[in-house]
Simulated assay, not measured.
Amino acid sequence: MDLRESMKKQNELAMFLARHVFSSEAKKHSNIVFSPASIYSALTLVASAPSEPSVADEILCFLKSSSTDELNAVFTEIVSVVYTGGNANGGPEISSVNGVWIEKTLSLDHKFKYLLENFFKAAFKLVDFISNAEEVRMDVNSWVQESTNDLIKDLLSPGSVTNETERVYANALYFKGTWQTPFDDYDTRKRKFNLLNGSTVPVPFMTSDEDQYIAAYDGFKVARLPFQGGRGDTNRTFAMYFYLPRKKDGLDNLVERIATTPGFLDAHIPGREVKVGTFRIPKFEISFGFLVSEVFSQLGLDSNKLYHKACIRIDESGVEAAAATADEACGCYLGMEPPKRIDFVANKPFLFLIREDTTGTVLFVGQIFDPSQSS
């Protein structure tokens, strides 16, 4: 098994999934953010559980993995590289935790119990779905909110957990990083952001005249904003990427290119800092929730109800982001060389993502159509 190749497949699936999530909201031109990493973690947990073979098979097919062993090997690599360490040594604060709630009348497979405790490091509870489904739902939501520093609230809506629920599998992901080169607050001021309908809205733009990692490609530009790394931590590098189409209405076409071109993300990474002409990035805060299982259904995949919510805040100091995914299971399983100086003004719809560059793991991905509106 080629572990790196397996991870590459999952990373490319991030943009494949983004393409379909974005298209489901295309008519609204919504601000969207979600976490492929959180969704994959939850799916890995579900695939490893004792269940009907078709459940694991569907997940393995979607994640392009040959077996649960391969899936778990990728999970182990991500945990050991991406989610290790934290803010104590100066690097980004990042955590990914798993939780499982199981109906107490069901027998708990000893092998699965061992996996939960020793492999997934998951907190698990035997609960009473039959008589206290609403209480369990509130407990899951409370666990998610605490695990995401209060960024993700009410992941599971009233009525989503019933007396027919047998298990809830959940993942909560939290990230907080400081820019390697923070922006100066006094340079932030409102400027025009162009909307697709031809109008503009005033939004606060962060500005810098420092050298930046920027590259110009055919029809779009990419800016890479690295986060501060931990002292002595040479294995992990986190960065936020901004993909800016040249045309105001070019975001949909750019997403299509990214999602359908193998290796696109790795092939379009600014390799060196360049002198900037004008460099402006809008401040924004957005949140978004959706049923992942509805997107899977559009792709011809059967699944449990898979809930997901994410939130991201970007300002002069850095980024804070969080996401949570919960699977509710019932008894019946349903480059060009850049010029010497280059402008990068994100004043029209753009794509962004946060990834760990050593493994290529995409933590968060999203699109911005109007930074002045939360979604």
Rank of each mutant, 00 (worst) to 15 (best):
G360V: 11
V33K: 03
P349N: 10
L301D: 00
L126A: 13
N31Q: 01
G229Q: 13
D109V: 12
L195F: 09
T44R: 10
K9E: 14
F205V: 08
W101G: 07
I342P: 02
V161R: 07
K153I: 14
I152V: 11
D218A: 05
K340F: 15
F175H: 10
S297V: 08
G366Y: 02
E77H: 12
D209N: 13
C332A: 15
H29Y: 09
D150Y: 11
N141E: 12
N253W: 00
E117I: 11
A14N: 04
D139K: 15
I286G: 06
Y213E: 01
S95N: 07
A73M: 10
E52V: 14
S67R: 06
D327A: 13
A329D: 12
G230Y: 08
G271P: 04
A322F: 02
Y243D: 00
G331L: 13
F364R: 04
K221H: 01
V81S: 12
K248Q: 13
G271V: 09
S372M: 07
V79P: 00
D233V: 15
L63Q: 05
G366E: 00
S51Q: 07
E12Q: 14
P92R: 06
L43W: 01
Y114S: 13
E256T: 14
R313V: 10
H110I: 14
A215L: 04
F242K: 00
H268S: 07
F205I: 02
L353C: 02
A47Q: 06
R280K: 11
A310V: 08
S374R: 00
D187Y: 08
I269K: 12
T278W: 05
D370T: 08
K121R: 09
F62R: 03
I354C: 01
C332D: 15
P158N: 07
A239H: 00
I102S: 03
E70P: 03
P92K: 07
E117Q: 14
S293C: 03
S35V: 08
F175T: 02
T44W: 01
F284A: 03
T237I: 07
K248W: 13
S208V: 07
G85P: 06
S131Q: 15
E12L: 08
M240I: 05
I342C: 11
E146H: 15
G366K: 04
R236E: 05
Y186V: 11
F288W: 00
S147L: 13
G318R: 03
D187M: 14
P50Y: 01
S35I: 07
R167P: 04
S142A: 15
L13H: 13
L363D: 01
V203Y: 10
P36T: 06
N132V: 15
A321V: 09
D154G: 12
E58R: 02
L116G: 07
F352H: 01
S287N: 06
N132H: 15
T148Q: 06
A123N: 11
V81Y: 10
S317D: 11
Y186W: 03
N253P: 03
E316D: 08
A88Q: 09
D109I: 12
I368C: 02
K309H: 09
N347L: 05
L115T: 08
I281N: 09
K275H: 07
S375L: 09
